[in-house]
Simulated scan of single mutants.
Amino acid sequence: MTWDLDTLCHRRVRYDDLMPCRNAFIDTRSPGSDRKENFTIIGPGVAESTDQHVHISEPHGFNVGGARQPDGCLNSQHSHEGAEVFVVHTGRWRLFFGPDREDGTLDISPGDVVSVPTHMFRGFEKLDSGIGFLWVVLGGDDPGRVRWAPNVFELAKQYGLVLLKSGRLVDLDRGEPLPEDAELETAPDAEEIARLVTPSPDRLAQCLVRHEDLRPNPSSMLAAPGVEESSVIAPAASGDGFGPGPIVGWWPHGFHLRMLRMAEGSHTPEYHCEEPEVIFVQSGRVRLVSKAGELVLETGDTFTSPQHWDHQILADIDTELVMVRGGDAPSGPQKRC
């Protein structure tokens, strides 16, 4: 397929054009959580509100979203059925584990990547001053439902929010009626909570890669003068010379995540991917160059590359890109024949 520049532009989501939802979840009015913004960039996400805007609905095998919060703002304790990966774009954050935040914490900073295991309670808070942004990858085309801790339900009732078993959020304070014969979601009981156990600190340490610990693979097909590609999440070996890890996970991911560092003036070889590839600009600025022309990506932008689309990446300044490729064992970048 031939891609024109206008069509490619519609596959780019500018950071400044992100459309937030401020009532995405049942904790939207809970004290400390009422200032957060939720974003669904690719795929349906896990939002409970019909107000959530989806930027790109095309199925990828994974979802991409984001969370933007000021200092002191909380995301309440919850559990996911599928993979949830945080890439820290800006700000310092603290993850809390356990239904009542009793099972420990983990502090993360810009460039750090953490994949929180499924079926355990987690929440997070923005620590430093100003606004911070987490870029988030969720496993699967349907990432499943969020399961909230008991105290989240208790607080929501005080602020007129009710969650249905279907996953829909009803705002009673805004005059939204409960559907006839609606079944209300209930808080997890002691038996369910016991199943959503927090792994040991040693196991959780296997789910984190610090920015300073990234190690480039010189065998990467994208490696070139000034260009280094490092593996972050790899459930299995890929077809382009990367082995499993450093984050493998004992739960399904359905994608690989890497970091691509590019020095000013550097460029990758021309390549394409057979699987979906999503690029996020962690820092810097690049140009994607193809027969269609040039497409610029700035810091904070997200772009989804068409499959089998031949292109090069050129760095105008020192740049760091997050690259997500679909599948447990993707074939990876392929040079143009």
Rank of each mutant, 00 (worst) to 15 (best):
D189W: 00
I313N: 00
T105Y: 04
D51T: 08
V146K: 03
V64I: 15
R12P: 00
C21S: 15
D16L: 10
E191K: 13
E264P: 00
E274N: 14
P235Q: 10
H119W: 14
L257N: 01
S129E: 15
R261H: 10
C9T: 14
Q334E: 10
T90S: 15
T304M: 09
P225Y: 07
D100Q: 14
H60G: 00
L295K: 11
F121R: 09
H53P: 09
L127Q: 14
I247Y: 03
L297D: 04
D16M: 05
G132A: 12
F242V: 04
C21N: 14
G132C: 11
V289A: 07
L208F: 03
R101L: 07
D6C: 02
P143T: 12
R287M: 09
A47N: 11
G132L: 12
R168D: 15
H53W: 14
D301W: 11
G241H: 06
A149G: 05
V197D: 06
I26C: 03
L106Q: 15
G175D: 02
V278D: 04
I42K: 06
V322H: 00
S238N: 15
F133Q: 09
P252V: 05
G300S: 08
P59D: 02
E37H: 13
E270T: 14
F39S: 10
V116T: 15
Q77K: 01
S33D: 05
E81G: 08
F121Q: 11
L134H: 05
T28I: 00
S76W: 03
V232A: 09
G61E: 01
K126P: 09
L134S: 05
A83P: 03
F242A: 03
V137N: 04
G239C: 05
D181V: 01
S33W: 01
A83C: 14
C337N: 10
E212V: 12
H80Y: 05
V197R: 09
R92T: 15
I41N: 09
